[in-house]
């Protein structure tokens, strides 16, 4: 069973529906004790970093996620959920994140070096460039996925970067370190490639489960 963390932000419905299309059982919950049992966890999210951290803390989900990350079971952050995995964010000043990955969330600069302007949010289909081998990318080819975000992860460890996209700056798109994974784009809205990425994630969850 995959657990989807419901902390009041983000479109849980579309992530759930995507798992249904893959025939993967899941539950949506805000209860740490229930989520603790899951074979894999998904942390979705849309909205502000600060609000999200406050809600996670309030609902007792912060410790759950940190404890879960210490187990060998896979944890996947999607969109804001990926950004939350990092040290901190500059959104609305400064907010501390989960600190599972090293890096800082910053605003996408709206102007390029040559003075050209970039619309923010970075909204639409952008091409993934694979940077390292990762279970998530197994058997897949570089293609477009759907992004909607105004902030990006900067100053991260190169070795944690599995795929990136270009939008004025290099946008970390798929990150992984041990059992902690993140996707900046919306795999559940990214047509075939998005579904394949989710399939690789859930495939790994069940492979690990069968080994346990």
């Amino acid at each position: 069973m995959i657990g989807i963390i419901d902390y009041g932000m983000g479109n849980l419905f579309s992530v759930g529906k995507a798992l249904e299309r893959l025939n993967v059982p899941y539950l949506i919950s805000d209860d740490p004790d229930t989520l603790k049992q899951a074979d894999g966890l998904i942390l979705p999210g849309v909205g502000s970093f600060y609000d999200a951290m406050a809600l996670l803390r309030e609902k007792g989900l912060l410790d759950l996620i940190l404890d879960y990350a210490k187990s060998d079971r896979p944890l996947l952050g999607i969109c804001l959920g990926m950004q939350l995995l990092f040290d901190a964010s500059e959104e609305n000043g400064f907010s501390e994140g989960l600190g599972l990955l090293k890096g800082k969330v910053k605003a996408i600069p709206p102007q390029g070096k040559g003075g050209e302007s970039y619309k923010v949010p970075h909204m639409g289909w952008n091409k993934l460039r694979f940077q390292k081998r990762s279970v998530l990318l197994d058997g897949l080819e570089e293609d477009h996925v759907y992004f909607v975000h105004s902030y990006f992860v900067d100053e991260m460890e190169r070795e944690d970067l599995a795929a990136s996209a270009e939008y004025n700056v290099e946008i970390p798109a798929v990150v992984s370190k041990g059992n902690v994974y993140g996707m900046q784009f919306h795999p559940e809205k990214s047509s075939r490639l998005g579904m394949s990425l989710l399939k690789n994630f859930t495939g790994m969850v069940y492979e690990k489960e069968s080994l346990r």
Partner: peptide, 8 residues
């Protein structure tokens, strides 16, 4: 539509 569609 949301159940069937994997685009925004």
């Amino acid at each position: 539509v949301a159940s069937e569609l994997a685009i925004p």
